[in-house]
Structure formats: C-alpha cells, structure tokens
Design a binder for these strands. Structure first.
Length: 190
DNA sequence: AGCGGGATTTTCT
DNA sequence: GAAAATCCCGCTT
C-alpha cells in the first residue's frame, strides 16, 4: 500500500482517511472497519500534542506518514491517530469513529466491549480503541503490516463530508478540523 | 434528551 | 501540580 497520499496537510489527510479501512487481527480473527469520523492536528495548532515541539511522547508525530500514534488520557482511555504529513512535520489525524464491516466484525468487537452493542461499539475515539484492542503496545506501529493495517480506498466525494469544529478540546475550539461521513450512524456526535 | 460528576494516571511545567 | 483530543452512570426534565 502506497501512503504517499497522506504526505500532505493534516486537514487534507483527515478528509482522505474517511472511508478507508482499518484491518485488525485479534486472536487469529481479522476484523475490518471503515473510518467514518476524523480530526486534524498539526504543529501550528494549539490543541495539538505536537504544538510545543518534539517530546518523547510526540516524537512519532514528526516521523513519516503511515504510522500509528496511540496516547493514553484521562487515566483510563487510549486514542488512535494516523501520523500524516512529511517527515519533520508534527501532524496526525485522530480516528474518532469507525463502522464495523462484514459478518464476523460485530461479534468479535462485542467481546472487547463488555455489554455494548451496535453503534456504541465504536462511536468514539476511546471506544474504538477498546473494541479493536488498541493500546500503547501498538504505538509507533507501521500501518502497512498486520496486526493492524490501513487500507486506503477511493477518496470520498466532497459533498459527502461534513466539516465541523473539533470535540473535547479547550484551545483552538473554533477551527473547522473535524470531518465525518454525512448521515453515518456511527459518528460520535452531531 | 440533557446535564453533572467521578474515574484514574501519564505527561510535561 | 494541573490538565487531559473520554466515557459512563445517575439524576432531572
């Protein structure tokens, strides 16, 4: 898979990643999900972890595109990002929601999310990490390889993308850097 | 449907 | 020491 189309601005990459597939292998089972909601973060953005430059945590954001950035927050949750932009630029796209695809997907994800079903399996950045069993063990993972692959798809049409402000941040609240698939039931918030 | 609080620990100042 | 790219539950309308 050629990730050169992610070698661009966080905003453009966040649009590009909508509709793309995450393929996760858990205990020999392979589950596929479509990315339906993203947010862009880059080093000019006060809300971004990379805003204050390189630190041990953010180093991965400054690397080449196509790697996974996982961070831990609120004492109990993990969130997943796809590193984007050219090497040397600290940019990433937060995966905020995904939609399970195929017959086996939901039942496998339910095993990771005690008592939750349907859209509640994956309609939030920390929920989808739990459902797909993503934690800091996968930080800096190369998304070309199992057990977690990113499969790029045909770019989604502009008219099928809704653009809004981001969720859960304090700084730079007004920037329109959240993107989701119009009408998709797995989107975390309208 | 909407609001408010608590959980809990990494990260950087 | 404070904040954090969140989630879940319980209470009120």
């Amino acid at each position: 898979m050629d990730f050169s189309s992610l070698n661009t601005t966080a905003e453009e990459a966040a649009r590009r990643l909508l509709g793309c597939i995450l393929e996760r292998t858990i205990n020999g089972h392979t589950v596929r999900c479509r990315i339906v909601e993203t947010e862009a973060y880059d080093e000019t953005d006060a809300a971004s972890h990379s805003y204050k430059g390189r630190t041990p945590r953010t180093e991965i954001m400054f690397g080449p595109p196509g790697y996974l950035y996982v961070y831990f927050t609120y004492g109990m949750h993990y969130c997943s990002n796809v590193v984007v932009g050219p090497e040397g630029v600290g940019a990433a796209v937060l995966i905020r929601a995904v939609e399970p695809i195929g017959d086996n997907a939901e039942s496998i994800l339910e095993e990771q999310r005690q008592g939750k079903t349907g859209k509640d399996l994956t309609n939030g950045p920390a929920k989808l990490c739990q459902a797909l069993r993503i934690d800091t063990a996968l930080n800096s993972h190369n998304l070309q390889k199992a057990p977690l692959k990113l499969l790029l798809q045909k770019p989604v049409e502009m008219r099928d993308i809704v653009v809004t402000t981001r969720i859960g941040i304090r700084l730079a609240r007004d920037m329109p850097w959240r993107f989701y698939l119009r009408g998709n039931p797995y989107v975390s918030k309208l």
